[in-house]
Design a protein around this nucleic acid. Structure first.
Lengths: 260, 260
DNA sequence: TGTACATCAGTGAACGCGCGTTCACTGATGTAC
DNA sequence: TGTACATCAGTGAACGCGCGTTCACTGATGTAC
């Protein structure tokens, strides 16, 4: 098996380059006018070619959109991962906070790309399966921070019994992994915790218990709620600019997932 | 000064009725196809009239959109207010939780109307000042719950000094109004707290101190973050259906704003 | 190394569509005396 | 109560625009012998 990543013929090289140019021009137009303003004809015009030529590269407008969506998910995921990897000093808390700020910075820099993946769905567009993996990178990055913090003993988690979680209330104290979960939520969280433990991406890190996972997802939704409100104008007249509010609330969210 | 709300002449009555019919048909199309699918021509077609006739009622497509946006903000605001008013048994906590669930239920019922006001901004559309008031109804409803809970002694708040908040750290305990706020956030929160205290809508309720206000806004962003994630598909494969997760997280958010 | 054929990239014209908005107009409704 | 005029609602044609996609084609690049 030989690696075939690099194009060999002139044709293949030209095709790879033009594909990149088309995608870049499309991203430029997306940034300028949003997803609805993106048109194949305009991209072709800007590149000085016939609009029909684009169909050699993308079979339809939706496929071009999908490529942009996948790119955006990968880019914001990479921003989070890089921020975590680059935070070598300090503990899990510093990594958590750095990831949140990196995600926000990415979004403020590219509001239309952010809106493409976290705003209202594009009408008539059905996200294909290829977007699922890239979309998971940001949440997985946060889970990774929690798992590492558990492995390092920074977060104290309670005992997790095999199978069903009992319905009894557990007093919530400093033990952030042992929130009382009941019914459907207990099942969903347990299944997710188990699935994450088996994931190949995290071979020898700790298991994140269901209770902590739920707190993590709550923090994750709040992070994106804040960014969306900031970008879409809901803070106008109150906490705008939102830097201070964001920093303050992220600090509280780090505490809420048990990061000291 | 006589009240002139009711139309007097046949012409005025017909105009009021047709305006309502146009708006209703537009809302139907919005629900079916989203904001971008909304077209004046299609509305006119469905109503059996010439497209040019619509210009007697709305000077442009954007004005029709504005009407729909204002209606949506008012509807979701009213849903929150009604839920609060209808929760006569129980304390502030019950009202807070009821309002959150009412907001979610409204959104799940009308995903496109929700997306219109809380999703990505419509490209090329600039929200006029007329949307500000209606947009504030939901957050004001939540602030009202907090103010009432303070007045009833359910929430214990710390001393609030006049004017500037000092930079000194305050130990966060059961006193949820006295989080340490610093810098720009302290200023913004103090200004907002003062503005709300002067608002004519809440004449004799308690002042919500800046620290509690910030916690309230954090809970507000999380509420809409959850709803957006649920509606826009980010929970697929994990906490979908999200009812249990939502109920659990809302309970924690009520606790986070100090509601016992 | 050279030739014959297959593959692919790109063109330009066309199809068929829908949109927002303007404009001169007709006929109905309202108002002042 | 009746008449003259002003106001308004609604029509239908038109302007000018841009879009996604298809198709038969030309010419360049690659490949098998």
């Amino acid at each position: 098996m030989t690696t075939q990543n690099a194009p060999r013929t002139a044709r293949e090289r030209a095709r790879a380059e033009l594909t990149r140019e088309i995608t870049e021009e499309a991203r430029r137009q997306l940034a300028a006018t949003g997803a609805n303003g993106l048109s194949l004809r305009a991209v072709a015009r800007e590149l000085g070619m016939a609009s029909s030529a684009l169909y050699r590269y993308y079979p339809s407008r939706d496929d071009l959109l999908t490529a942009l969506i996948v790119d955006a998910y990968n880019a914001i995921g990479e921003a989070a991962e890089t921020a975590i990897a680059d935070t070598t000093s300090g503990a899990g808390r510093a990594r958590w906070v750095a990831a949140c700020h990196a995600v926000r910075a990415w979004a403020l820099d590219r509001p239309h790309e952010y809106a493409l993946i976290y705003g209202s769905p594009v009408p008539g567009y059905r996200a294909p399966a290829a977007t699922i993996g890239p979309a998971a990178r940001v949440p997985l990055a946060f889970v990774g921070v929690l798992a590492a913090a558990i492995a390092d003993g920074e977060i104290t988690v309670g005992e997790v019994t095999d199978g069903e979680v009992t319905d009894g209330e557990v007093a919530a104290g400093a033990d952030h992994g042992a929130d009382a979960l009941t019914g459907a939520l207990a099942d969903q969280a347990a299944a997710l915790s188990a699935a994450l433990a088996l994931a190949p991406s995290a071979p020898n890190t700790a298991v994140v218990p269901p209770g902590l996972l739920v707190r993590g997802v709550a923090a994750w939704t709040q992070l994106f709620g804040m960014i969306s409100f900031e970008l879409f104008g809901q803070f106008v007249g109150s906490f705008e600019p939102a830097d201070a509010f964001f920093a303050h609330t992220i600090a509280q969210s780090a505490t809420s997932v048990g990061l000291p």
